Lab assay of single mutants.
Amino acid sequence: SEEELIEKAEKLRKEFEFIWNGIRFIIRENADEIRRFEELLKE
Rank of each mutant, 00 (worst) to 15 (best):
S1T: 03
L12T: 04
W20H: 00
L40V: 03
E7F: 01
F16Q: 00
I19A: 01
R35I: 08
A9N: 09
E10Y: 00
E43M: 07
L40D: 01
R28G: 12
F25I: 12
E17Y: 04
L5S: 06
K11Q: 09
I19L: 03
E15Y: 15
D32P: 07
E4K: 05
R36A: 06
I34A: 03
I27L: 02
R24Y: 04
K14N: 10
I27A: 02
E3K: 11
A9G: 03
E15D: 06
D32A: 08
R28E: 12
D32T: 08
S1K: 09
A9P: 04
L41C: 14
K11L: 08
I27R: 00
K14F: 13
N30I: 15
I6E: 08
E33F: 15
I23G: 02
E39Y: 02
E29I: 14
I26G: 00
I27D: 06
L12H: 05
L5E: 05
F18C: 13
E33A: 13
I26W: 11
E17S: 03
F37I: 03
F16Y: 02
E33K: 11
K42H: 12
E7C: 13
I26H: 01
E4D: 07
F37M: 06
K42N: 06
F25L: 13
K42W: 13
A31C: 15
N21S: 12
K14H: 08
R13N: 05
I34N: 01
L40I: 09
E15S: 11
E29M: 14
R13V: 11
A31M: 12
E17N: 01
F18M: 06
I23R: 00
E15T: 15
E43L: 08
K11D: 05
E43T: 07
R35F: 08
K14L: 09
E33C: 15
R24G: 07
K11G: 11
I23L: 11
I27Q: 02
E29K: 08
E4I: 11
G22Y: 15
I27F: 04
I6K: 07
E29A: 14
K42L: 10
F16L: 07
E39D: 05
L12D: 06
S1H: 06
R35A: 08
K8V: 09
I27E: 04
F25V: 13
L5G: 04
L5H: 02
F18L: 07
E43Y: 10
K42P: 03
F25K: 14
R35V: 09
E3N: 11
E7V: 09
E33D: 04
E43P: 07
F25C: 15
E7P: 06
E10V: 03
K8M: 10
L12R: 04
L41E: 04
E29L: 14
N21C: 13
K11P: 07
D32I: 11
F18Y: 05
R13C: 15
E7L: 06
R13I: 13
E7Q: 07
F25R: 14
D32Y: 05
F16W: 12
E15V: 15
E39I: 12
F16G: 01
